[in-house]
Amino acid sequence: MFQEIKYYRFGEAGILLEFGDGISVDMNQQIHNISRWLNENPFDGFIETVPAYNTLTVLYDPMKFAHPEKSAFELAKNRVKMRMESMPKEEASSRHVIKIPVCYGSDFGPDLENVAKLNSLSPEEVIKIHTENTYYVYMLGFAPGFPFLGGMSSRISAPRLSSPRLSIPKGSVGIAGKQTGIYPIETPGGWQLIGRTPLELFRPSLNPPTLIEAGDQVKFYEITLEEYHSWEADHGHND
């Protein structure tokens, strides 16, 4: 099962496991299954995992593997391999579908018209296509809780802005190339913004600290401005 994995050193305290070349949901799910298993069954010296599209990075404490003759990396790598071999075969894939309400257009989605024009569509058609598909979350990165989503229709793709905005409000939903994403905190960014969600994607006081986890699925649905504001009123201010 794990024959094709390549193991690389990554810094003094990391092992990078490479599972293959391209992007595939099956491979990515395998990465998240292993990641979850290692976090639930940590070995002495385990620090954390960082799963990505086709790689899994395992961080460890080299001092726990310091040895007068042997390489700490080799010892840690063997420990990771041993842990992976004890992983149960049955796939424990409980993929949640997270539903994300989005208020499209107007001030929340200043680039919606532009995305529509670029693809010779009406704004309504862009919204219809954006809410049609179910998106798979390959990984989180860039900002806390920012999902790298796969599965957007190329009919609504749009290039990054030539000059990024200095500040993008949190909750903004954007498109860059063939990707769509949600900004969980205020940050600079170059994605074309089509709407905003009132949901808090990053919640530092909760465990897990993010609404969306890697391996989940995401589905967007449209809400009106009134619904957006009443959501905010019910769940505290999204400022």
Partner: peptide, 10 residues
Amino acid sequence: RYTYQQYGVI
């Protein structure tokens, strides 16, 4: 702040 990089927390 370790153990939260998988959530995108720096």
